[in-house]
């Protein structure tokens, strides 16, 4: 995995402009397949015969619950598995990070034929296993505890067309290696602790959402606010300045039966990056919505 928070591409619920109604629980599983061959070593695009294609697969449990119509709680638990097609390096697998978010629809304005809403999301994530942060590009993640502040604006017209824009600032804790010193790309540090730069992301989408159908095109940009570049022929390092721009499409469809059952699929491609793999990401999932309050 040579991208930081790939959860973004399937953490649709954190970035979109939709809310689960009160006492409604939506849950399901998402399968993701991400693969890259070329990557950016700093800003130099290259491939590497010692890793070939790097494939990351994950299976993520997701759950969203409506505490009220305006406050939702969103949880995710991914199991991640990595593999390189060439070379001798061992792949990794294991539970990655628990993500727990609160989404608050703090403003809503209805016009005659349209509606505008804004959302604030506070998301917390923390490792669920003691996977190593020191095995990029085949590690499972950064092994940091993260806190994201996200603001989202959503505008939709009566016919079902919408635009959605979201941005977040993610604070990341430092991470700890199993070794007593390291070179972070800029300097030699005599410590097992790595200072982790924070991350900023932007997520913009436009599409159609009416009845059982939701379809959108989206743009995702993630920038690490600091960190060193991968040096020439060096291995990537956990605190590298990993930046990327991805574009993609997502479709979600509520099946006529059984009631409450939906399928979701998406595809993304990395169009630009720095210290990141040029990945193609495919995702497919099944979601089921349960209403606990029959009166609603």
């Amino acid at each position: 995995m040579l991208g930081l928070i790939p959860t973004l591409s399937f953490a649709q619920n954190l970035t979109d402009g939709l809310m689960m109604p009160k006492k409604t629980f939506c849950t399901g599983f998402m399968y993701m397949h991400d693969r890259w061959t070329d990557y950016w070593e700093g800003e130099l695009k290259r491939d590497n015969g010692n890793i070939g294609h790097v494939t990351t697969q994950s299976l993520t449990w997701v759950g969203t619950y409506g505490i009220t119509n305006k406050v939702n709680v969103i949880a995710m638990v991914p199991y991640v598995k990595t593999k390189a097609s060439q070379g001798t390096m061992s792949g990794m697998e294991g539970l990655q990070d628990l993500s727990l978010g609160v989404k608050y629809n703090f403003f809503r304005k209805k016009f005659e034929k349209s509606a505008f809403s804004t959302f604030a999301v506070l998301n917390f994530s923390t490792p669920l296993s003691d996977y190593t942060p020191d095995f990029f590009p085949l590690g499972l993640g950064t092994h940091t505890t993260n806190l994201s502040y996200r603001l989202t604006a959503h505008f939709k017209i009566e016919q079902g067309w919408f635009v959605n824009a979201s941005g977040a600032y993610t604070w990341r804790s430092n991470t700890t290696l199993d070794r007593p010193s390291y070179y972070d790309g800029n300097e030699f540090v005599m410590s097992d602790e790595v200072k982790m730069p924070n991350v900023f992301d932007v997520f913009v989408s436009m599409g159609y959402h009416k009845g059982p159908i939701q379809a959108e095109l989206n743009y995702i940009q993630q920038n690490t606010l600091g960190g060193g570049d991968i040096r020439r022929q060096d291995m990537p390092f956990v605190s590298n300045r990993m930046n990327m721009i991805k574009t993609g499409a997502l479709v979600m469809y509520y099946l006529p039966a059984p009631r409450g059952m939906a399928v979701r699929g998406s595809a993304h491609y990395t169009v630009a990056g720095r210290n990141a793999g040029q990945s193609t990401t495919l995702m497919a999932g099944v979601l089921y919505t349960i209403k606990f309050d029959k009166n609603q």
Partner: peptide, 30 residues
């Protein structure tokens, strides 16, 4: 519901306070 919104808002502000006061300087050995 109103209480939930106030709690949500306070939680956002509280966590922001923790984060902004966190020191990321690493502890050096030797």
């Amino acid at each position: 519901n109103k209480n939930i919104y106030i709690i949500t808002f306070l939680a956002f502000a509280f966590v922001l306070g923790i984060v902004s006061s966190c020191d990321k300087e690493v502890e050096l050995s030797e």
